[in-house]
Simulated assay, not measured.
Amino acid sequence: MDLLIVSAASLMAGMVDSIVGGGGLILIPALFATFPAATPATLFGTNKSASVWGTSIATAQFSRRVRMRWPVLLPATGAALIGSFIGAWVVTLIDPGFLRRLLPFILLAVLLYTVMKKDLGRTHAPRHSQRKETALACLIGLVIGWYDGFFGPGTGSFFIFLFVRLLGYDFLNASASAKLLNVATNVSAIALFAMKGHVWWHIGLTMAVANVVGSLIGTRLALKHGAGFVRGVFIVVVGALILKTGCDAFLA
């Protein structure tokens, strides 16, 4: 029964994550509720071991239908991998607790900006030369990759927002690009958790199958309904992230 519960949660998380990220809002609470005696690191590691497969499949699906800017995204993916490693290393030295109270306000600013800018992310119009776009994408990858390794909540949403705001992508292309970078940050995290023995592979692999199914459903919805649909889901997920991180920071 426990495996059935977390697999169902993994399916839903894969669907949400494939569209705009934020699948951890569903799967991590489900894991903590189902396995209350487990250490947090083990549950985080097991979550990553499942979600990385759905994110990888979503990336592959998007790349077949969306024109990925590979000369820009591949260097940015490398930067995200490096940033995530550095963030994971820094978290062994510094307590990330100071971000807990700050994060809801950062997410609120992202949400308000997106809602107020009605046309934000509706049209795909990269605004920079390839060299400048690559430099900015690498900076995004390095900074948000570091954040994912150090703290994590809202990583996919931050990737999407910055690709839209700084590079001129629409929400569909930004979501596709964010998936690629998110794979890199997830692989980095899994490597760290696995080295420390914090992954339940037998549970993670079962959840991975469900996560892939959810990812396929979510990707098809995003491709079918386009940037406007992704923008709407982004607003809902960021709103949910604000509530979750706000409760964690001020009510826990």
Rank of each mutant, 00 (worst) to 15 (best):
A240R: 08
I5W: 14
S157F: 11
G152A: 11
F32Q: 07
F35V: 05
G226K: 08
V183C: 15
R64Q: 13
A191H: 04
R131N: 12
I203W: 10
R64M: 13
I19R: 03
L120H: 06
P75F: 12
V209N: 06
A50G: 02
L223D: 07
G226S: 08
A137D: 03
V52K: 04
V6P: 00
A109I: 13
S49D: 03
I82Q: 05
V90R: 13
P153T: 06
D119I: 09
A30I: 02
A191K: 01
A13M: 04
V230C: 07
L4Q: 09
K196F: 10
I28H: 01
L172S: 05
R165K: 14
A252Y: 11
G23W: 00
G149Y: 04
A208W: 09
H202T: 11
P153H: 08
N182F: 07
N182S: 14
I242Y: 10
F161D: 06
L241I: 06
S63K: 08
A50N: 04
L108H: 05
N186Y: 01
I140F: 11
W200T: 00
S7G: 11
V230A: 05
S177F: 03
A222I: 02
G232P: 08
L99K: 10
K132L: 15
F159G: 02
K48I: 04
L166V: 06
T219F: 07
L251D: 10
K244P: 00
P29H: 12
S84M: 10
L73P: 07
G45F: 01
K48M: 07
D17Q: 11
A76L: 07
W200R: 13
F250Q: 12
A125T: 10
A249V: 10
F150T: 03
F35R: 07
R65L: 13
W201F: 14
L180D: 01
F150V: 05
P29F: 09
G22V: 02
M207D: 00
F32S: 08
M1R: 04
P96T: 11
A174I: 04
A240C: 14
F151Q: 02
F85A: 13
G145A: 09
P96F: 12
G154H: 02
V6L: 02
R122I: 01
D2C: 02
T34I: 05
P126F: 02
F163D: 01
S49Q: 07
F163M: 14
K196R: 15
I106C: 14
A88Q: 13
T134A: 15
L102Y: 11
L166S: 08
I5A: 12
F229T: 03
V213A: 15
R65Q: 15
V233A: 08
L223W: 05
F150E: 05
A210W: 10
A9V: 06
A125P: 01
A240H: 04
T77L: 15
S157P: 06
L180S: 05
A135N: 04
L251V: 14
T185M: 04
P40H: 11
A249M: 12
V212R: 03
V212T: 06
F85R: 15
P126V: 06
A37F: 12
V72D: 00
R131Y: 09
G156W: 03
F105E: 08
L216Y: 15
H124T: 01
I94F: 14
S63V: 04
F171T: 00
P126H: 09
L251A: 14
L139V: 12
A176R: 08
A109V: 13
I19F: 01
A194R: 01
F234M: 01
